[in-house]
Design a binder for these strands. Structure first.
Length: 579
RNA sequence: GACUCAGUAGCUCAGCUGGUAGAGCACAUCCCUUUUAAGGAUGGGGUCCUGGGUCCGAAUCCCAGCUGGGUCACCA
C-alpha cells in the first residue's frame, strides 16, 4: 500500500492507521460525538473552589503530546482555543490490557489527529487549567504532519509563515496560526453589523444576477462565459448597480446586496479577480443623506469590532468617529496643487498635468484628467476618513448632475488611509440624460477608452418608467476588512485568494502520471521518476530494456520498497508502448 | 507587463568567495515518569524548484523557465 512518493512521516501515519484498524479501532467513526462545552468556556468558567466542569466532553485536534510513563500531557485545540489534557494509563485503561494507552495513545496517535475526551477539570501543580481525561475517542486520523508552531511569553517559534503555502493551504494556516482566524471572524462581524443596521432601517436584502447578458454598472473588463442552451454569451457581473436600481423603480424603498463582483484585470495587494462589495440604494434620499448614513455605518462597524472608533492601520491611527470632513474635489486639488481647476477645459487641464509632472495621453477626456490629478496629488493625503464630493460629470455616467453646477455631479467617495473605501451618488434618474451619458461613454470607447461602460437598454427602459430620487452607495468589503483588521494585503482577508494553479512539485509527478497512463503500474511510474526519467522523451532514450529492468529492481531492493519486481518482458512491453 | 528578492528535510532556516548536504522543531527506538516553546540518549529522513551551460567537480557561478513575495505600470 505504501507509495514511495510519500514522506517517511506520512508512511508512518498510514501504517498507524492500519494498526488502529487491526486493533478494532475505527479511525473515521460515523457517530455523533456529544460535545458538551468548549475550551473557552472551561477557561473562563472554571473555579477551583466550585469544582465545576466535572463532567466535560470536548473534542478537537491534538496539538502537542508530552508523553511520559504512566502519565502524559497533551493539548487539544477546538474552535475556541487550546486546553491541556492530563492522561493516565490506568484511567483510560481500567482493566489488565494497557494497549490503549501504551500503543494507541503513545504511538498511534499523532499531532493533528482529531479526538474527543471526557473527564473533569482541575488545576495542575504548575497552575494550568487541565482536563483530567477518563475516556478518549479517536474521531479522525490525520495522515499529513502539521507544522508545529510553539509559543512562549508572546514569542513564536517555528511559525508557519510561507505566504504561498498559507494561501494555498488556508486550512493549515487556520489550524496553526490562530491569530489569522481572528481576521476572518472580524470580517463576518463587519458584514453582520452592517446588515443589522440596514435591517433596522427597514431595507430589504436582495439577490441579483451574477450571470449578466450585459456587464453594466461599472467600467471594467469582465469575465465572459457561455450559456449552452440559450447559446448566448454571459458575463460575470462587474457590478450589480443597475439591477438594484431596477428594484427601486419596482417600488422598493431601500435595497441592499452583499455581492461578489468579478473583474478580469490585474491582481495585486489590493485587487483580487473576485471581490465583495456592499451596494445599497435608498429612495427619496440624496447624497447628503447618504454621507450621514455612511459615516454612522462605518463608525458603528469600528465600535462593534474594537469597542472604540480608533483603529490602528499600519503606522497610522485612524479615528472613525463621525462626522467626517467633506471636501469638494476642486478644493482638494487646490489645496494640494495650488491650482484652481474650476471651469477649465481639456487643454488647460492637460497643461496643468504637464506642469505637475503627471503623464497623460490623448485618449484622456476632461474627467479622466481631473481624476488623474486627484489620484496623483491628493488621494494619499486623506488618512483620516474624509468625504471627497462633487466629481466632474465626465467620470460619473450614472450620477445626477449637481443641483447648482452642471459641470459636476452629486457624488462622493469616502477616503480612508489614502484609499477609496466607499463611492456614492445621488442617482441619475433622468432617462434622457442617462441615455446621453451612455452615448458619451460610447464615444469615449470609440476614442480608445476601453474602460467606458456598456449601454444597458433595459435599464434605460426602467428609468423611462420613472425612478424616484434615490441615493446609492457601495463599499468594498475586502478593503474595509483590511482597514478594520490592519491587514495590508487583500489576500489576508480572503480565505482563498486567487492563485496560479499548482502544477505539481516538479516534472516528476506529471511524468509519473504520464507513465501510468501508458499502463505502467503507478508504483513503477514513481520509481522511474525517482530514477531520473523525468519525461516520456527520456524514457524513449533507453536502448536496453534489460538495463532499465535492472535499475528498477535495484532501486526496489536498495530502498526496501517491498514491491514485486516486474519481469523483463513487462519492462520490454512498457518501452515498446512508447513507440 | 517591467524590475527585484526568494525557492534546501513535514515546518522554520543555515550553508552560496564551487570540493562527500547541516541545525532546531517534528518523526522513530530506548531511558525517565506531573510536564509546559525544548526531560535525556541514539537514529532515520533531501530530485538543494525545473531544464540547460561553464567546470575534473555545481545547492553554490551563468542562461532560460516555473511558483511566490515586494515595487512600479495597467487597472478602481
Amino acid at each position: 500500500m505504501t507509495s514511495i512518493s510519500l514522506s517517511e512521516q506520512e508512511v508512518i501515519r498510514r501504517n498507524s492507521l492500519l494498526r488502529l484498524r487491526e486493533l478494532g479501532i475505527d479511525p473515521y467513526p460515523a457517530a455523533e460525538y456529544p460535545v458538551n462545552c468548549s475550551v473557552s468556556e472551561i477557561h473562563s468558567g472554571f473555579s477551583e473552589e466550585l469544582k465545576n466542569f466535572n463532567e466535560v466532553c470536548i473534542a478537537g485536534r491534538l496539538m502537542t503530546q508530552r508523553i511520559m510513563g504512566k502519565a502524559s500531557f497533551a493539548e487539544l485545540q477546538d474552535s475556541t482555543g487550546r486546553i491541556q489534557l492530563y492522561i493516565t494509563r490506568d484511567e483510560i485503561c481500567p482493566g489488565e490490557d494497557k494497549t490503549f494507552y501504551n500503543e494507541v495513545f503513545k504511538k498511534l496517535l499523532d499531532i493533528g489527529d482529531i479526538i474527543g475526551v471526557k473527564g473533569y477539570v482541575f488545576i495542575t501543580q504548575m497552575g494550568e487549567i487541565t482536563v483530567h481525561v477518563q475516556e478518549l475517542t479517536l474521531l479522525n486520523k490525520s495522515l499529513r504532519p502539521l507544522p508545529v508552531v510553539k509559543e512562549k511569553d508572546g514569542m513564536t517559534f517555528d511559525a508557519f509563515t510561507d505566504v504561498e503555502q498559507r494561501y494555498r493551504m488556508r486550512y493549515v494556516d487556520l489550524i496553526v496560526n490562530p491569530q489569522n482566524r481572528d481576521v476572518f471572524v472580524k470580517r463576518t462581524k463587519i458584514i453582520s453589523t452592517m446588515r443589522e443596521m440596514f435591517n433596522e432601517y427597514g431595507f430589504l436584502e436582495v439577490e441579483t444576477p451574477i450571470l449578466q447578458p450585459i456587464p453594466g454598472g461599472a467600467a471594467a473588463r469582465p469575465f465572459i462565459t457561455h450559456h449552452n442552451t440559450l447559446d448566448i454569451p454571459l458575463y460575470l457581473r462587474i457590478a450589480n448597480e443597475l439591477y438594484l436600481k431596477k428594484l427601486i423603480v419596482g417600488g422598493f424603498d431601500g435595497v441592499y446586496e452583499f455581492a461578489k463582483d468579478f473583474r478580469n484585470e490585474g491582481m495585486d495587494r489590493t485587487h483580487n479577480p473576485e471581490f465583495t462589495v456592499l451596494e445599497i440604494y435608498v429612495a427619496f434620499k440624496d447624497y447628503f443623506w447618504m454621507m450621514n448614513f455612511t459615516e454612522k455605518l462605518v463608525e458603528r462597524v469600528a465600535l462593534a469590532l474594537h469597542g472604540s472608533t480608533r483603529v490602528q492601520i499600519g503606522e497610522q491611527e485612524v479615528d472613525f468617529k463621525a462626522p467626517y470632513p467633506r471636501v469638494t474635489m476642486i478644493e482638494a486639488i487646490k489645496t494640494h496643487t495650488g491650482y484652481d481647476i474650476s471651469g477649465m477645459d481639456e487643454n488647460r487641464l492637460r497643461e496643468i498635468c504637464d506642469r505637475l509632472g503627471i503623464e497623460t495621453n490623448p485618449g484622456m477626456g476632461k474627467g479622466k484628467l481631473i481624476d488623474q490629478i486627484f489620484g496623483e496629488k491628493c488621494e494619499h493625503h486623506y488618512i483620516q476618513p474624509t468625504f471627497i464630493i462633487d466629481y466632474p460629470v465626465e467620470m460619473s455616467p450614472l450620477t445626477k448632475k449637481h443641483r447648482s453646477n452642471p459641470e459636476l455631479t452629486e457624488r462622493f467617495e469616502l477616503m480612508v488611509f489614502g484609499k477609496e473605501l466607499a463611492n456614492a451618488y445621488s442617482e441619475l434618474n433622468d432617462p434622457l440624460d442617462q441615455r446621453e451619458r451612455f452615448e458619451e461613454q460610447l464615444r469615449l470607447s470609440e476614442k480608445g477608452d476601453d474602460e467606458a461602460m456598456f449601454i444597458d437598454h433595459d435599464f434605460l427602459r426602467a428609468l423611462e418608467f420613472g425612478m424616484p430620487p434615490t441615493s446609492g452607495m457601495g463599499i468594498g468589503i475586502d478593503r474595509l476588512t483590511m482597514f478594520m483588521t490592519n491587514q495590508l494585503s487583500i489576500q489576508d482577508v480572503l480565505f482563498f485568494p486567487q492563485m496560479k494553479p499548482e502544477t505539481g512539485k516538479s516534472g516528476t509527478i506529471s511524468a509519473a502520471d504520464e507513465f501510468s497512463s501508458l499502463g505502467i503500474p503507478e508504483q513503477w511510474s514513481e520509481v522511474l521518476g525517482k530514477l531520473g526519467y523525468s519525461s516520456l522523451a527520456r524514457l524513449k532514450e533507453v536502448d536496453k530494456y534489460t538495463r532499465l529492468h535492472q535499475e528498477l529492481c535495484g532501486y526496489n531492493k536498495k530502498n526496501k520498497l517491498g514491491l514485486t519486481n516486474p519481469s523483463q518482458d513487462e519492462v520490454k512491453a512498457w518501452l515498446e508502448q512508447l513507440d
